[in-house]
Design a protein around this nucleic acid. Structure first.
Length: 578
RNA sequence: GCGCCCGUAGCUCAGCUGGAUAGAGCGCUGCCCUCCGGAGGCAGAGGUCAGGGGUUCGAAUCCCUUCGGGCGCGCCA
């Protein structure tokens, strides 16, 4: 609807520019917006205000000139100049009636558009280390990332979602060590656990699997392991890892490493799937090393002259691209850094042919943005293809009380717990309704309360109510054929209000996609639900006489479809009864 | 110290690339089921958009600055 009006203005402006022999290339962008107040009509454009200066006219004069050249349209009943030079458009009811047919025709696809032009986008989000279960902090990234991926698909981007598995590196070695030590405990060994290892129950669970399946194959006497450990925690941990590898042999340690990784990745996959987040692809860091992709990327950096050796390590000259300091890629001990994997990974993404990369990171990683972008530049790629979106942390509360979280101590609320307490739908909506860069207070008591405080029920309830109306029809034996509905019978103010809301949905999808802000959709859905509930309370559907009833049923059926579409964008279900 | 994010009603938050009289939910006050689901609807009270400068026809929005809060500045991941 909006694009139709917009094209009318564009045509008028083109004519005007032609008459005045002005090059249309340099014109600033103008807008066509929904009005906030009804006495400003349905749409308002600032075209005359924006173009006044470059065209050297007074805004109101220019607005008049545009109006005179506006092509006739059955949808616009009136267009007039207002205030400093806005042009207000009043739409005919016919324009709004059209929406019902649009929804009915497009069904699940109503609201979709082609602004993405099929551009290939790779979205990477969550990508938490598989060293433990996901916690509520990951939930926000998951909810945001998945909703954005869905919105981008609806907007015509060829979007793929991916989870990067950090299954190499020291943290994973510590995990394997932790599992082994718990396993030794199950074998009857007794000793003090170093504080640096992972303490969570899941470590014990994996150890139990190892004990069940491997019997005593990995058993060892503990006392020599613990002898003469360095006093600092990191040193002690590294030495324990070394000793574990020596005791078990590279294969034995590897076996435990794999068991731990596979178990946790599978657990994460199931956890996210229950949160309605299903990835197109799971990409393993180890595979980058196995395929030689990592070495290739490092070699390419060397060839391009961006690596140098200092203190036995290889450094990337990221300061050449505006980073604060140069960064180590290969450590003095010969092992690559996490950053080296990241370089290879992002290079690989672009080599796979994506036009745009979107990463969703926790705000604590913002310091990494410049160095990753620098590495892309150094590899001869365009760093502007990579967009890194940050989600702020959610501070957890139980009522008034702040919940402190620490992964190491195992003292955190998991995503699974949240889901089990409040349900996937409520959790997703709760996350989705906040814009990502906003700090957020997550009150577990509020989210846990299955009350109306939680906005998701309000929207779902509207959907369920509509479904219930159609069930009532069946109970009463009333046959309806919505194809025959005469939309012109919808003349109540509340009906037009509802139609207006439905017509906004495509704009919301487009805007949410452009701004990468799915929360716009959540707000829209609450407004749409409000319009419906108001309508529901004011007018009967079933009791009305036949033709009016049919018209109203067609309207609420379209409403049901749009709520369904919108909720599915957010990964929230649209129940037919609650 | 330097860098990034944020500061809007009692609380939690919207406010679309600057646009007309700053909105919603919760909470508070008062109303609304002879009718299709009251997890609903209507109305009211409530704001110096953290403070101060600047840019212009026009600023919650852009720039500078002060204050306040979060996060980051490893041969960790």
């Amino acid at each position: 609807m909006r694009s139709e009006i917009r094209s009318l203005i564009t045509r008028a402006v083109d004519v005007l520019l032609q008459e005045r022999s002005i090059d249309p290339g340099e014109m600033p962008l103008w807008t066509l917006e929904r009005t906030k107040q009804k006495d400003h009509g349905d749409f308002a454009s600032n075209v005359a205000l924006v173009l006044a200066k470059p065209l050297g006219s007074k805004p109101r004069d220019l607005a008049q000139a545009v109006l005179e050249r506006l092509p006739a349209s059955g949808w616009v009943t009136r267009a007039e100049i207002a205030g400093p030079g806005f042009i207000n458009f009043y739409l005919s009811t016919a324009a709004y009636y059209q929406v019902i047919d649009d929804v009915r025709k497009a069904q699940k696809n109503y609201g979709c558009c082609r602004i993405g032009k099929g551009q290939r986008v790779l979205m990477e989000f969550v990508s938490a280390n598989p060293t433990g279960p996901l916690h509520v902090g990951h939930g926000r990234g998951a909810a945001y990332g998945d909703a954005l991926a869905r919105v981008l698909r609806a907007a015509g981007y060829d979007t793929q979602s991916e989870y990067y598995i950090n299954d190499a590196g020291r943290q994973m070695d510590i995990l394997a060590l932790s599992v082994w030590l718990r396993y030794l405990e199950l074998c009857g060994e007794s000793f003090d656990f170093p504080s640096s290892i992972y303490q969570g129950d899941y470590v014990f669970d994996i150890a139990a699997i190892l004990h069940r399946e491997g019997g005593a194959r990995y058993q060892h006497v503990v006392s020599p392991l613990m002898l003469d450990l360095p006093t600092d925690e990191d040193g002690a941990t590294d030495m324990l890892i070394e000793r574990a590898q020596r005791c078990l042999g590279p294969e034995g340690f590897q076996k435990i490493h794999e068991l731990a990784t596979n178990t946790l990745v599978e657990d994460i996959r199931r956890d996210l799937s229950a949160f309605s987040v299903d990835y197109d692809q799971w990409f393993s860091e180890t595979s980058l090393m196995a395929s030689g992709a990592m070495e290739r990327a490092v070699q390419k950096l060397k060839d391009n002259g961006y690596l140098y050796e200092k203190d036995g390590a290889w450094w990337f000259r990221s300061t050449d691209f505006g980073d604060e300091k140069d960064r180590v890629v290969i450590r003095a001990n010969g092992k690559s850094t996490y950053f080296a994997s990241d370089i290879a990974y992002h290079f690989d993404k672009l080599e796979r042919g994506f036009d745009e990369l979107i990463n969703i990171w926790g705000a604590d990683h913002h310091g990494y943005i410049s160095r990753v972008k620098a590495s892309l530049s150094a590899l001869g790629c365009d760093p502007s293809a990579l967009h890194i979106l940050l989600v702020q942390f959610a501070v957890l509360y139980r009522g008034e009380e702040k919940v402190s979280m620490s992964t190491r101590s195992g003292e955190f609320v998991t995503l699974r717990q949240l889901r089990e307490e409040v349900g996937s739908d409520a959790a997703r909506f709760f996350y989705a309704i906040r814009k990502p860069e906003q700090h957020m207070d997550f009150d577990l008591e509020l989210a846990t309360s299955q009350s109306a405080d939680n906005p998701v029920y309000y929207v779902q309830y509207a959907h369920a109510r509509i479904c219930s109306v159609f069930r009532q029809l069946e109970v009463k034996g009333i046959q309806v054929n919505l194809e025959r509905a005469d939309h012109q019978l919808l003349n109540e103010e509340r009906e037009l209000e509802l139609l207006r809301a439905l017509s906004r949905y495509p704009d919301i999808i487009e805007s949410a996609a452009r701004a990468r802000e799915p929360h716009q959709l959540a707000y829209f859905l609450r407004e749409l639900a409000n319009d419906f509930h108001t309508y529901y309370n004011a007018h009967p559907f079933i009791a009305a006489e036949d033709s009016l009833r049919l018209a109203r049923l067609a309207l609420i059926d379209a409403t049901r479809q749009v709520i369904d579409n919108g909720l599915s964008m957010l990964g929230v279900s649209a129940p037919s009864s609650m």
